[in-house]
Design a protein around this nucleic acid. Structure first.
Lengths: 164, 164, 164, 164
DNA sequence: TTTT
DNA sequence: TTTT
């Protein structure tokens, strides 16, 4: 039985466009690099800003939505859980990865009444918006999000990695 | 000793400008009416939207910041706890109130890169921004936020209500 | 579209046994009264304890599980959302209710290794544990949980109230 | 200014006794290894259990409390934030670490009324409970918590690492 | 790499 | 009463 709670709540901005891949079974696996920053005073009383870069993964339908609507700079609310993985590289060295597996996502940044006249939403509906993305194993490659942690090769993923 | 966790996380939009009041001790008590809406399918399969209106209270310094930066329509992240109160009206009828007592707040809605050219932030710094508000028991009254639940009279509040 | 986040996380103890009812459609609606307490210093520096009594509702399968496993005194983790309702009584007076609608629940209090010898788990599997409860509209009434807020009559509920 | 939300909520059990160290400035840095497990169905429909081992760090006063009251097997609620760190080992290889920096903690597992007669709390007050631990750089080493990720040497820490 |  |  499930035993324990593992919950993460993030609000941050994307450092790059989402990276969308598909498993052999055709399921979307979308990865974003999400920045959250905070300030604290160091021991000398100076303001210190620190930014964490979270690697967030969206699977399945949520992955398609994330890939379609999110863009570099978008502000987003993410809820999910932490997953730690270990891969052994071809050089025999063990590498550790930490992912946030998202199970809820919400785009932020509508215009409030306080906001002045002109335009400017937070996200741009991608061309061809409404329709469900085709399977596109060989789609034009988007720029890979350079997350703080290096990523394992996509070959290491299979449909078994979909966590639900 | 503390026993239990009582935590609320909200992301929503203000239905009205904040209502800022001050206790006799000079502490700010800012109240906002915050909408969160969600959809579900009813038993006939129709999409039904439902909006909850949360009455959120900010005390002290956080109350001053909320009163200064938030405006009707602003999108905001709030973290806090639920507090249930009971007041007996002058007619002898007991009335129940539920408040979210905020202990963290963050304004949302910066411009992402996806957002086009023009202006449009989410909030407007109020005139006289930087300086700390004077004690203003008799300040010009702002429009009262008509929260879902009616509010008890401010006379019912004292410095003892500051929850920390 | 869904707009906003309305999330509640509670860890507390039940003030009474769960109250299990069934809608006409046969869905369980289980209500518990959950205490969370905290301490703060009042303005005279004295420790003040304050307890909030949350009325938490579980629907459907989760309601059956809650009714089966939870008992007065049980410690439980609950995740859900806040719902405000207004009912007009037969006397024409409007009454306001606040519920936590649970969508996740986890019983706490397994025996850690640090805990000494003897018995004592946190919850007691009810007689007839494993099997799904029969429909029991006319089951022997359990003692009603004396939540802080009085409850509207069950007649006011219908299958439409199941929030998903 | 702070920008973003980075919040983690965990409920789990300790895999080992806490590891308490002190910085040169005399501040406690307590590390625990916390297990949260969950089940999902794999693509063949089999129940699969997966356990994440979180490395949770408590600083300062909270670190002293954690070191004093938590024990292997204890069930605990932790709230904090995720912190990613990179250390370059003496072999020149970069290593990545993920920590949960706790800012709230609560022990779980009090005796509910449902729990039978005998003993058995969840945690054991350590001998010498009430008094504040002495500075004990050279205290008898406790068994190191075997977290999923290996730990950097304590020499890599300084008072600057206290995140508040 | 984001954002303010 | 907000927002999309």
């Amino acid at each position: 039985m499930a035993r324990g709670i593992n919950k993460v709540i993030l609000v941050g901005n994307l450092g790059n466009d989402p990276d969308v891949k598909y498993t052999q079974g055709g399921m979307a696996v979308t990865t974003i690099s999400l920045a959250t920053s905070s300030v604290r005073k160091d021991k000398d009383g100076n303001q210190q800003e620190r930014t964490e870069w979270h690697r967030v993964k969206f699977f399945g339908k949520l992955g398609e939505i994330a890939g379609e609507y999110l863009r570099k700079g978008s502000q987003v609310y993410v809820e999910g859980s932490i997953r730690y993985d270990k891969f052994t590289g071809s050089d025999g060295v063990e590498k550790y990865f930490t992912d946030i597996v998202a199970d809820e996502m919400q785009m932020l940044g509508g215009r409030g009444e306080g906001g002045g006249g002109g335009g400017g939403g937070n996200y741009e509906r991608s061309a061809g918006g409404g329709q469900r993305p085709q399977r596109q194993e060989s789609a034009a490659p988007r720029r890979q999000a350079p997350a703080q942690q290096p990523q394992p090769a996509m070959d290491d993923f299979s449909d078994d990695d979909i966590p639900f």
